[in-house]
């Protein structure tokens, strides 16, 4: 009962924050709200017992993303405001969103019950991870065993993605000074 109350409270909080992000015009406030959104998501993951995911969300989503957004804001001016969009009510997007949302909600009906032990997701590879990882890998944290060993190739891909992102940032906005000096000559 208490857990459900906390769930409802946190989800309501997420909804309020996202509406606030859409409506607020000061960009600095929006960035801070994004950070709070990530922190609330991390709490939700924690309630679902996904400690590793919650850890990552808190560190990357609430920490580093906010820092990078603030760094960007310090370049473009922190008090800049989103341009005021003319309030013209158009019904087509609203209808599309409502229909899509209704379809998704209708799709929930066919999903297996949340957390049931005989759900398809729990009967495929999960039993092997749960019952044999201690004898095969001998690492108490199941998440690490799956991430680094059973799914090691996927994780290699993730690391390469991060590495590529770093290269992208360096290519796009790194080394600007050298070019300007060249231009001066």
């Amino acid at each position: 009962m208490l857990e459900q109350l906390i769930d409802i409270f946190l989800l309501a909080f997420l909804a309020i924050i996202s509406i606030a992000i859409v409506r607020i015009r000061n960009v600095f406030t929006a960035v801070m709200l994004f950070g709070i959104y990530s922190l609330v998501s991390a709490s939700l993951f924690m309630i679902l017992d996904a400690a590793d995911v919650a850890f990552t969300e808190a560190a990357v989503g609430a920490g580093i993303s906010t820092i990078l957004m603030l760094a960007t804001l310090s370049l473009v001016g922190r008090d800049r405001e989103k341009p005021l969009v003319k309030k013209k009510i158009s019904f087509l997007p609203l209808v599309i969103v409502l229909v899509t949302g209704a379809t998704l909600v209708y799709g929930i009906v066919d999903l297996p019950p949340f957390g049931a032990a005989d759900n398809p997701v729990h009967t495929h590879v999960a039993p092997r991870y749960i019952f044999q990882s201690m004898s095969e890998i001998d690492v108490p944290n199941l998440v690490t065993a799956v991430l680094a060993s059973y799914r090691g190739f996927d994780t290699l891909g993730e690391v390469v993605v991060i590495f590529t992102a770093g290269i992208g940032v360096l290519l796009l906005i790194g080394g600007r000074r050298r070019k300007e000096e060249n231009a001066d000559e």
Binding site: A71, G166, G174
Partner: peptide
């Protein structure tokens, strides 16, 4: 294997984030 692989992940993530932040800063 897991210790080495996790070390590789940690080194790359830490230095890429520092690189990105320094570039912005």
């Amino acid at each position: 294997g897991i210790i080495l692989v996790e070390a590789g992940v940690g080194l790359t993530v830490a230095s890429v984030i520092m690189l990105m932040f320094f570039t912005f800063a």
